[in-house]
Nucleic acid binder design. Structure first.
Length: 793
DNA sequence: CTTGACCGGGG
DNA sequence: GTGTACGGTCAAG
């Protein structure tokens, strides 16, 4: 029979001595599991005499009483970087035998190398059978004795818009007990709790055990396709597992009554719910989206504020504990819990379509696509594209190789133009569209075009003793070019589609996913853990990037522009009649660039402020811009970091705003007033708290740190503070070191004005005001200001 | 300037 | 599970 369906999850089991791949599918008639039992795991062996290797290994091996059979071999032709080679494909019975068998085979003297022995089996299967998750496929199915169907054949179908039933959830845990579980789904808001709360969305359960049972029942009954939340891997599901265990309950919320398990991946573990897509939003935000976000902290509230424009309203954990212990304000507590599920749901509406698109492009199951880092995303895409081209993949470097790569040290990165510190009016920001990817395409920079033997036309760089062959397009440039071209096509289509509609959203998600991937190749080349690592290619790319931006700077100066600043792929320019001049300038520059590259106008700014380093030179990567709409964009200043007190951050923001309004005197006045308030003892301790996370038991810390000392003292007072708690402390008055005077906010009966002035207010303020001739003493009102107005007007 | 410890998100 | 994977910042050396 035939069915139209999407594969949303995949894994494998061992049935006897045969692997069975399970594909979890969704169709318009519901979900089902299709299995493939006709598969043989394999890896490659290389050497000069493959026939001899074949003979040597045909009897199989044994290791610690485990049979490692070789059930078949096959000599195949493959491309290895820029060489055509023959490889021996070695098959065995089940996947876990692959690494062991490979070790045995690698030891033979005839074997020069072994390849593709460390690719998780479900990934290998999806690649080899050209199954792309999250795409609509036509499946040819037959009956299976154990699962819904056996898979016979797969055929791809056209793209269609995806809709997935989604539930976002959030737990509230107090004193290790799960007291609330909030859900926001496509159709309703729901809160399970053990408290008596009279609100429409609340369902009260009589015990935590009942709550857990209801949690599971709800997910299974509603049969959600996507379960999401914020940091659910590392928090919510860990708590759930502990509490389910406590009551001897099974945490089986997937589609096959199998217990949820944690997949280990490096320093994280991921909660795998078989058959549903558990997509934790936090890893995707931190791995993939963070570089493009302004917010420096990635807590749910900040991220939601930036991406959704939702106002922050965070309740402190202390506050919640008090509410719960005194059984007060429970309605408010419930609303707070629901708000977090709500934010996660709304974030998911923005982010999940991008994850699904990345999954479609890279061929990773959504579970993986949502959690992998940039490098891993790129590598999985490369593995699939390499397979499609009959290429054999390089091995992942082992520890010693990684160390070697690391020891080579850094190569030069982007060019940064040193700004003259001060204020500038009316500036234009120009930048190269995807500088590194387009450089790689324009000059055919790729691991497989490096130093090709017998190459006819090479691109050489005087500085380096290697070259890139231009005879045939390389692997990376080919992939980048097609990704960028597809993206351009989609962007053109988008211009003719009304914003806000479903079609628009799905295309927009796709173009973003394509951008993410196209931009990942350069970083991947220089990533020490990469299979296709090429320091030469990475180094040549940044070298050329520097050439292009420096050319642009030179060109601007020749055409009478004042270059204010530039970094890697951007330049800030100034000139009389700026807006009229820019257009022609861009045309001239672009006419000289390779056709795939483009310098474009990012925008105009009313004013820009560039600060100085301690030694008085122009600081790089630290500036503030005032947009034409009055918005302020701050780069590199402390203002957004959480290890600074609120008062320091607020003061810096106010100071920068005044500076951008060309009122440095008013800015200095703000600092003086703040200092006065601090000295008068008028400042609320809430504005003085500094957050740090206690990561281990206080005794285990080698060095003294303020937050550790504060916790030690609080514990002596009987406070229970466990590792992994984020504490807020204040530096109080008295003698001794700073650490010895640190107290948790609730125990702070005074504050050390001098500390906050010298270590918080003065440093952040001087960062902006030193340029205008202010010194520490002047801001403290102790001396005269010199050189005022140097940059005024 | 280089090296090693620490930290993130969640309650 | 064809396992064992980050990247940036800051204080100390």
């Amino acid at each position: 029979m035939r069915k139209t369906a999407r594969v949303v999850d995949a894994d494998y089991r061992i049935d006897g001595d045969k692997p069975v791949v399970r594909l979890f599918c969704e169709s318009s008639e519901g979900s089902f599991v299709a299995v493939d039992r006709d598969i043989r795991p394999y890896f490659y062996a290389l050497g000069d005499d493959l026939e001899e290797i074949k003979k040597e290994i045909s009897g199989g091996f044994e290791e610690e009483d485990e049979e490692l059979p070789v059930i078949d071999t096959e000599i195949v032709e493959r491309t290895d970087l820029n060489q055509e080679i023959e490889a021996l494909k070695v098959y065995t019975t089940v996947p876990p035998k692959i690494p062991k068998l490979r070790r045995q085979v690698a030891q033979l003297k005839e074997v020069s190398d072994t390849r593709e022995f460390d690719i998780p089996f479900y990934k290998r299967y999806l690649i080899d059978n050209e199954i792309t998750p999250a795409r609509t496929l036509e499946l040819e199915l037959s009956d299976d004795e154990e699962y819904d169907y056996a898979l016979e054949k797969v055929r791809g179908l056209v793209e269609e818009e995806l809709e997935h039933s989604t539930a976002a959830f959030d737990l509230e845990v107090i004193d290790d007990e799960i007291i609330m579980a909030a859900f926001r789904t496509d159709t309703e808001e729901k809160l399970f709790t053990t408290a008596d709360i009279e609100l429409g969305f609340v369902e009260t359960l009589e015990s935590e055990e009942q709550l857990l049972k209801r949690f599971k029942e709800y997910i299974k009954d509603e049969d959600f396709e996507i379960i999401t939340g914020y940091n659910t891997d590392e928090y919510d599901f860990k708590r759930l597992r502990e509490r389910f265990e406590k009551y001897n309950l099974t945490l089986d919320i997937g589609r096959l009554d199998e217990r949820m398990k944690f997949d280990r991946r490096g320093r994280f573990s991921s909660a795998r719910v078989k058959g549903r897509m558990h997509l934790d939003l936090y890893p995707f935000i931190s791995h993939v989206m963070a570089p493009g976000l302004e917010s420096e902290t990635l807590d749910l509230d900040s991220v939601a504020e930036e991406l959704l424009g939702r106002k922050k309203d965070d309740v402190s954990f202390e506050q919640m504990k008090d509410w719960w212990r005194n059984q007060q304000n429970l309605e408010e507590f419930a609303k707070y819990a629901l708000k977090d599920a709500d934010l996660a749901y709304e974030l998911a509406e923005e982010i999940v379509p991008q994850i699904m698109e990345l999954s479609r492009i890279t061929g990773l199951i959504p579970f993986d696509a949502s959690r992998l880092t940039y490098g891993q995303l790129t590598e999985n895409y490369l593995l699939r594209e390499a397979f499609n081209r009959d290429m054999i993949s390089p091995n992942r470097p082992f520890r010693d190789e990684r160390q070697k790569r690391r020891r080579q040290g850094a190569y030069s990165g982007g060019f940064v133009y040193s700004p003259e510190p001060g204020l500038y009016d009316e500036i234009a920001l120009l930048d190269f569209k995807s500088l590194y990817p387009t450089v790689m395409v324009s000059h055919n920079i790729s691991p497989d075009t490096l130093d090709v033997e017998g190459c006819e036309e090479s691109f050489e760089l005087e500085e380096f003793d290697y070259e890139f062959c231009q005879d045939e397009q390389g692997f990376f440039p080919e992939l980048i070019e097609s990704l960028i071209e597809e993206r351009t096509e989609i962007k053109n289509k988008l211009e003719n589609i009304e914003n806000g509609g479903k079609k628009h959203k799905s295309l927009d998600s796709r173009q973003r996913a394509l951008k993410i991937l196209a931009n990942s190749f350069y970083g991947y080349l220089g990533y020490e853990g990469a299979r296709w690592y090429s320091r030469e290619a990475a180094e040549a790319t940044t070298y050329l990037g520097r050439e292009y931006i420096q050319d642009a700077v030179k060109h601007s100066e020749e055409e009478g522009f004042e270059v204010v600043y530039g970094d890697t792929d951007s330049v800030f320019l100034r000139k009389q009649d700026l807006k009229n001049e820019i257009e022609g300038f861009l045309e001239n520059v672009n006419a000289e660039l390779p056709s795939f590259m483009e310098l474009e106008l990012e925008g105009y700014f009313k004013r820009g402020f560039f600060t100085s380093t301690d030694s008085g030179e122009g600081a790089k990567k630290k500036y503030a811009l005032l947009g034409e709409d009055g918005s302020m964009k701050i780069t590199g200043f402390e203002q957004v970091r959480r290890d600074w007190s609120p008062i320091a951050k607020e003061t810096q923001e106010k100071v920068l705003r005044k500076v951008l309004e060309n009122e440095p005197e008013a800015a200095a006045e703000i600092v003086k007033e703040t200092i006065e308030e601090l000295n008068d003892g008028k400042v609320d301790v809430e504005k003085l708290k500094i957050y740090t996370t206690l990561t281990k038991e206080p005794e285990e810390y080698g060095s003294t740190a303020p937050h550790v000392e504060a916790v030690k003292k609080a514990r002596k007072r009987g406070e229970e503070i466990k590792p992994e708690t984020t504490v807020a402390y204040v530096i109080t008055r008295g003698g001794g070191t700073i650490s010895s005077r640190a107290e948790l906010v609730k125990y702070a009966d005074s504050y050390d004005a001098e500390y906050y002035i010298d270590n918080q207010i003065i440093p952040v303020s001087l960062r902006a005001l030193k340029v205008f001739g202010y010194t520490e003493d002047q801001l403290k009102g102790k001396g005269k200001q010199s050189g005022l107005g140097r940059f005024g007007g």
